[in-house]
């Protein structure tokens, strides 16, 4: 891939929580149409990377560029409007909004109501389980349904890049496969994806390329099939 195809790029990004340095100047690129996975153990800084991209935590230095434009430290909702959508860890859906409202709120800046309806129907097509519960409060959904709702809400914005934080967390294996299938479909329909996962096996199956993060630094990067054969990765993240 060439430079023109770069959708998202991080340049020496550094993020601190008070006295704690969570990202020590990381750089990575995501090209159009790719699924890139970001691996790493607990506390490595994976979530922090996504949060810095989406404007939830400020970067101390370095740059976040989206389609060549500097979006470092913009307001989260403006970043959403540009098409960079973060689905946070632990599926933060709105418990006291209905399923439909949870989806509607994902397209807040959209003026076209007909288009909004169309997108809602598309989400319900993708996730029939949600369609049956459209008037139910979000908080009453099961864990898997909440994850579907969180992804469905992201789809409402017609995202250019999806930042997914551990979508498989806490799900039964069957559901993990289902969610991964959906991520693959979204990608095939043209959405570029940056996928954070603890479940490296699943992530590397899906991804084109991967980066490995360790205590705030990128220690390895490469094609997914190469990474899944790398000894240290196999030892650290793939079991056996």
């Amino acid at each position: 891939m060439n430079e023109n195809g770069t959708v998202l790029s991080l340049e020496n990004l550094e993020t601190w929580y008070g006295q704690i340095c969570a990202l020590r100047g990381i750089s990575l690129d995501v090209y159009r149409g790719e699924i890139v996975t970001l691996l790493g153990s607990n506390g490595a800084g994976k979530s922090t990377t996504l949060k810095t991209i989406s404007g939830l935590v400020p970067a101390l230095s370095g740059k976040v560029k989206f389609l060549g434009e500097d979006i470092t430290n913009s307001m989260p909702h403006s970043i959403v409007e540009m098409g960079v959508i973060h689905v946070p860890e632990g599926r933060r859906i709105f418990r006291d909004l209905t399923v439909t409202e949870n989806l509607e709120i994902g397209s807040f800046s959209l003026k076209d109501n007909a288009e909004r309806k169309k997108r809602i129907e598309k989400v319900f097509e993708t996730f029939p389980a949600l369609a049956d519960r459209r008037r139910q409060m979000g908080g009453l959904l099961s864990g898997g349904e909440q994850q579907m709702l969180a992804i469905g809400r992201a789809m409402m914005t017609d995202p250019k890049v999806l930042l997914l934080d551990e979508p498989s967390m806490g799900l039964a294996p069957v559901l993990v496969q289902e969610i991964m299938e959906i991520i693959k479909n979204l990608n095939e329909e043209g959405t570029t994806i940056l996928l954070v996962e603890q479940n490296a096996k699943v992530a590397l199956q899906l991804a084109d390329r991967g980066y490995v993060l360790e205590t705030g630094e990128i220690v390895m990067e490469g094609d997914a099939d190469k990474l899944s054969q790398d000894d240290s990765i196999v030892k650290a993240y793939l079991g056996h």
Partner: peptide
């Protein structure tokens, strides 16, 4: 924060 993250101009 969650509202802002999904695009609500808080």
């Amino acid at each position: 924060r969650a509202a802002n993250l999904v695009g609500v101009p808080v």
